[in-house]
Simulated scan of single mutants.
Amino acid sequence: MNILRSVWRVADSSSNGKGSIDWAAVSAAAKAATDPGSLDLSTADRDGYASDVRDARERLQAVAEVEFDVPEVIEVQNRHHWIDANVETFHRIMLPLEEHGPTVLPGITRAINTGTFALVLSFLGNNVLGQYDPLLLADGDGDDDHGLYFVEPNIRRVAHSLDVDYPRFRRWIAFHEVSHAAEFGAAPWLSTHLETRMERGIDALVEGDLDRDAFRELDTAMTAVEGYAELLMDRAFDEEYGDLRRKLDERRQGGGPIAKLARRFLGLGLKRRQYERGARFFRYVADKRGVAAASRVWDHPENLPTDDELDVPERWIARVSP
Rank of each mutant, 00 (worst) to 15 (best):
I3A: 10
L4W: 07
R5N: 13
V7F: 08
V10Q: 01
N16R: 05
S20I: 04
W23P: 03
W23V: 01
V26T: 04
P36H: 06
D40H: 05
L41S: 05
L41D: 12
S42Y: 12
R46K: 15
D47T: 09
Y49P: 10
S51A: 11
R54H: 06
E58N: 13
L60Q: 15
A62M: 12
A62H: 11
A64S: 14
E67D: 15
D69R: 14
P71G: 14
P71H: 12
V73Q: 13
I74G: 09
V76I: 15
H81T: 03
W82N: 02
I83F: 02
D84F: 01
E88H: 08
I93T: 10
M94K: 10
P96E: 09
H100F: 11
G101E: 01
G101Q: 06
T109D: 05
T114Y: 03
A118P: 05
N126P: 04
N126M: 11
N127G: 04
D133M: 05
L136I: 11
A138W: 02
D139A: 14
G142S: 07
Y149A: 01
E152F: 01
R156Y: 01
A159R: 09
S161I: 10
R168W: 00
E177W: 08
H180V: 15
F184M: 13
G185K: 09
E195T: 08
E195C: 14
T196N: 12
E199V: 14
I202G: 05
E207M: 01
E207F: 00
R216H: 04
R216G: 09
L218I: 03
L218P: 01
D219W: 12
D219N: 13
T220V: 15
T220W: 04
M222V: 03
V225Y: 06
Y228H: 12
E230C: 06
L231S: 05
M233Q: 14
R235C: 04
R235N: 09
E240L: 04
R245C: 00
L248P: 00
R252M: 15
G255I: 07
P257K: 06
I258E: 13
A262K: 00
L266W: 08
K271I: 12
F281Q: 09
R283L: 12
R283P: 12
Y284I: 13
V285D: 03
R289V: 02
A293H: 12
R296F: 06
V297Q: 06
N303P: 05
L304G: 08
L304Q: 09
T306H: 08
D307H: 09
E309V: 00
L310C: 03
D311L: 05
V312Y: 07
E314Y: 00
E314S: 02
I317S: 06
A318T: 14
V320W: 01
V320G: 06
